[in-house]
Design a protein around this nucleic acid. Structure first.
Lengths: 214, 214
DNA sequence: CACTTCATTGAACACGTGTTTAGTATTTTG
DNA sequence: CAAAATACTAAACACGTGTTCAATGAAGTG
């Protein structure tokens, strides 16, 4: 259908865009020069500007491409698999899980998502807005079908769930060193999901009235 | 203004450091020029280099100062109030709550913390490491005293709790627009804590084969 | 073929950057 | 007070940056 994840695009334009995606994700937009992007793509610096107008134009193109790809991933959670999830009672659908299943291990998209959300640029805000709406809808449906417990403040609950999920991607490196496993690998995610699911289903604190720790 | 957040330091050095902290937090290190920092501090650009040697030296100084201030805040959660928390069962201890209680509304430190954690900065990594160790210790103590339920994988549980807490700061703006309240204000945090506490104590999803809690 | 369009490049330009330098006020100190 | 050290500044420098420009080759088009 959509060639969002299509890696078979070998045009110079796509090569430059992918090179920029990797460098931007790794070091940030400002720390990467046009000459570096051109070298990584194997072209001349002038060609980068020829295809994208300016460095900021390239940034916009990379943003759009990344947002499309990321949206395509998230759509699998909110749309297609929602009915299956509700039917089977499987509640372990997460953005992190989609990342692990779909992306190759060395993909730069998790890091780029981090940059999108770190900088307050409108692309990241729009991305989050769409994902939040989807999360909210899924949770409402789960409450209606009795899979999830109702809550007085569904807006907060949906935001909390989405945010806790995204944090796995945002703090991937820190989590890796803390627990000794990369949560964006199958083994690491399995460890992570197991315990998090336990909290989501049964809570973590025994006696009611106690509060969450640091 | 606590001891670490002492604003009574009116030396040019501190003024420059604070100006740099605000600008770095808002726009990132690379996007801020020495001339802008000097203008914000009301001094000449050369004085910035005179006091800190280089722009990177200034960055190191700002990092150290921010890390000290943030550590002082976190220390209040893990150290001093741990016994009180276990004894009284009261306190809702979270990093976000400490921020709201201690910092003035316009403080740049939340945004700077976000930059520290999301840019693979070694200072941010060290900060996270210390906070993780503290969180782990608190949770272990809570399990020992029966306040928290035991878990097979305490490393993951501690990481999940810390990360979910930090996510409030990392995604502050996105959460604000999603739920219509800034979670780093007293009112917004109250909403947030109420629902999150419900999840932590009773869970949010029905376990397979069980009925959702009411 | 002639002609246009597009992809691509090396070289240069204009500008902003961090930094240096030399010098002046201001404070400290013996 | 004299001298040394420090706080501070204006101006300039060296360099890397994004960008432009003219030119060359390739590919389609009538």
């Amino acid at each position: 259908m959509s060639s969002v994840t299509d890696k078979r695009d070998f045009t110079a334009r796509a090569t430059i865009r992918n090179a920029a995606l990797g460098l931007f994700a790794e070091r940030g937009h400002d720390a990467v020069t046009v000459r570096e992007i051109a070298a990584a793509a194997g072209v001349s610096p002038a060609l980068v500007l020829h295809h994208f107008g300016s460095k900021d134009g390239l940034r916009v193109a990379v943003d759009a491409h990344a947002a499309d790809t990321l949206d395509a991933i998230f759509a699998q959670l909110g749309g297609q698999e929602l009915t299956e999830m509700l039917a089977s009672g499987e509640t372990s659908t997460s953005v992190a899980q989609a990342f692990v299943q779909i992306f190759p291990p060395g993909s730069a998209l998790p890091a780029y998502l981090r940059r999108l959300l770190l900088t307050n640029d409108p692309v990241g805000a729009a991305l989050f807005g769409r994902w939040y709406a989807t999360t909210r809808g899924v949770l409402d449906a789960m409450v209606d079908s009795g899979v999830a417990a109702p809550t007085e403040d569904p807006a907060v609950r949906a935001a909390f769930m989405l945010v806790s999920d995204l944090a796995v991607i945002l703090l991937r490196e820190q989590i890796s060193t803390a627990i000794g496993d990369d949560p964006l690998t199958p083994t690491g995610l399995a460890r992570w999901t197991k315990d998090v699911t336990a909290v989501y289903t049964g809570g973590a604190f025994a006696a009611p009235g106690k509060e969450p720790p640091s």
